[in-house]
Computed example of a mutant assay.
Amino acid sequence: MKRLLIAAGGGGDAIATAMVHAALHGPDEPALVLTYAWERLVVDPVPGPRRPSDFTGTVTAGPTLRLVTPRSAPRPPAGSLLPRLSADLRPALGLLDPYAGASGLARQIEEAAAYCEAGHVDVVDVGGDILADGTEPTLRSPLGDALVLAACARTGIPTSVHVVGPGLDSEVPEAALLPLLGDPLHTLTHADTLSVQAVFDWHPSEAGALLVAAARGIRGVCGTRDAPHPVTLGDASPHVYRLTLARALEINPLARALAESASLADAERASERVCGFSEIARERARAAQLGQEAGESPGGGTAPSEPRPLPRALPRPLPRPLPRPLPRPLPERFAEWERRTADSGIAYVTTRRIAEELALSPAQLTALRRHLSTATPARHTPPLWRLAAVEA
């Protein structure tokens, strides 16, 4: 027998779900975490979620349910961190495929319950957008969470909904969530993070990193890359809250609208009606923009360059080019960036924000991490980085 849990939002929610499971039931209790392979363009250049046919090496656990293992791999051009994540997390990982809407997800959850011999489902969401009403101006990715709620309701299996780290995903503000959540079920501690501590050396999840930092006692304003405004880690940030499935459905109108959805296209249309947008359509537009910036033609591949006309006469000799200035040392570039960031009131930053705003290659990021950890050991407060202004 295994406990059955669902990481409602996919991506980094699987990490938080493993941590919540370890905190509530012990890290050694067998468990299966169902999660989407929906890891956004930072990991996967193909818009939307991946399905089992997008992977090799999955394990069959039911007619429609597949498990992701360290031997699994995404089929190019798709990308996914789930195979590597399955090696670092103790619970097994099962793949949620939303392409048949809530009805298809319900079948997968029922198969997972039979596989685990589980009579109960625990849904876990980092941040709280699973309780979004669809009108929040900062809402970006409500669809996966709402589909999970709708699918769980279709199964009839008793289900609890856990919200952890309210507001940490920058989608629904903490102040709007706390009146809906009641008293916390559990407060995560440093000990609860030990089972996932190595994951953030390589995984880009920012909400998950903030949750781990909060559990380790870090408090203050944190700057992330994937959010319009900084996040403040406060006393509620490491809390785990539990709601009934009925209460979550009562709050979430998109989940109710998805009850009869039989395809992902149905789900997109429901999101457009309730929330005014489709996050998958936004991903398609962003992927197309990135492709154009990289020089791809609309039909794929690299856009051909225009042929240059032959010169009418021999060109005049070009002036000798001025020597290019030597690139500044990486620590110097970081120090300048750090001063600007700290001046905006930010005390901590994620690794992803450093890497993306400084446009660092993996080798450069490794070198910078080594420099900051050895030259100023107090700067690294895993999995975040403390800016110099905090040290004064």
Rank of each mutant, 00 (worst) to 15 (best):
G220L: 06
G234D: 01
P204H: 05
H239W: 02
S278A: 13
L211W: 08
V196S: 11
E296W: 05
F277H: 05
L264T: 11
G291R: 06
R256T: 15
A255N: 05
L310K: 00
R247N: 02
P307G: 12
A255C: 09
C222Y: 04
V231E: 04
E279L: 10
S263I: 12
E260C: 13
S278H: 04
E306S: 13
A248Y: 00
E283D: 15
V212Q: 14
A265P: 06
A294L: 12
S271N: 06
T302K: 05
V240N: 01
R225E: 01
D201T: 12
A248E: 01
G217D: 00
E293D: 08
R216H: 15
D226W: 13
A267N: 04
G208N: 05
R273M: 00
A255F: 08
L210C: 12
P309S: 06
D226I: 13
C275N: 03
D226M: 08
G208D: 03
L233P: 00
A287N: 12
R216S: 15
E250M: 01
A267K: 14
A294H: 14
Q289K: 10
C275H: 04
I251M: 14
D266V: 12
A281G: 09
V196N: 13
S263M: 05
G291Y: 10
A255T: 11
Q197N: 10
G217S: 02
A248V: 02
A259E: 00
T232V: 14
A207I: 08
L210G: 07
A270M: 02
F200T: 12
P253L: 07
A303Y: 05
R219V: 03
P298H: 08
V199C: 07
S261P: 04
